[in-house]
Simulated assay, not measured.
Amino acid sequence: MQTSNLSASFIYPLIIAAGILQAWGPPMNGALQKSLVNPWLASLVSFLPIIALLLCLFICIPKPLPTMAGLQSMPWWAPLGGLLGAGAVVAGLMFVNKIGAGAFAGLTISANLLMSVFIDKFGWFGVEVHALSPGRMAGCALMVIGIVLISKF
């Protein structure tokens, strides 16, 4: 499924649903860590269903396969995105029970948003450049204010 063929009216609800489901992950991982005690074992157990699902999907839908040209032109850092995501999972399972799901999500989402506008501004990692407009800066400021309120109250 290529996103260029999907309309915004279809893409945005999917992204919102993914965000809703993403909020479930840290509390679920926090409960996993509480039961398993060891955060590294809990992280491993958390990733096993993902690996199994992706392996099954790849076996069922093996195409398209990468080309040699695609592999040769791939930036060295491209495969490291999952490793960075694993850091977020470990942080979630270790800290969500200490500060609460709302504060944890607010901090991670706000940090994600702030970094993302810089990624957009400078076109890092091959993304299309988007200016750091006053509206975007105001949105970031409101996110920071929101997380302060959520964390404090």
Rank of each mutant, 00 (worst) to 15 (best):
residue 6 L to Q: 13
residue 10 F to H: 15
residue 14 L to N: 02
residue 19 G to W: 04
residue 21 L to R: 01
residue 23 A to W: 03
residue 24 W to A: 13
residue 31 A to N: 12
residue 32 L to H: 00
residue 37 V to Y: 09
residue 39 P to H: 02
residue 41 L to F: 13
residue 43 S to G: 11
residue 45 V to A: 09
residue 46 S to M: 01
residue 46 S to D: 06
residue 48 L to R: 01
residue 50 I to L: 05
residue 51 I to Y: 03
residue 53 L to Y: 12
residue 55 L to P: 00
residue 56 C to P: 03
residue 59 I to R: 07
residue 60 C to T: 10
residue 60 C to P: 00
residue 65 L to H: 04
residue 65 L to M: 12
residue 68 M to V: 10
residue 70 G to V: 01
residue 71 L to G: 03
residue 73 S to P: 05
residue 74 M to L: 15
residue 77 W to P: 01
residue 80 L to Y: 13
residue 83 L to Q: 01
residue 85 G to S: 06
residue 87 G to W: 06
residue 88 A to H: 09
residue 88 A to V: 14
residue 93 L to E: 02
residue 93 L to D: 00
residue 96 V to S: 07
residue 97 N to M: 04
residue 97 N to S: 10
residue 98 K to D: 06
residue 107 L to W: 15
residue 107 L to V: 15
residue 110 S to L: 04
residue 111 A to V: 12
residue 111 A to P: 10
residue 112 N to K: 04
residue 113 L to W: 09
residue 113 L to P: 07
residue 117 V to D: 05
residue 118 F to V: 05
residue 119 I to M: 10
residue 120 D to F: 07
residue 123 G to V: 06
residue 125 F to C: 05
residue 128 E to C: 03
residue 129 V to M: 07
residue 132 L to M: 13
residue 134 P to S: 09
residue 135 G to K: 05
residue 135 G to P: 04
residue 137 M to C: 12
residue 138 A to H: 06
residue 139 G to W: 09
residue 142 L to H: 09
residue 144 V to W: 13
residue 146 G to D: 08
residue 146 G to K: 06
residue 149 L to R: 11
residue 151 S to Y: 10
residue 151 S to F: 07
residue 153 F to Y: 13
residue 153 F to R: 15
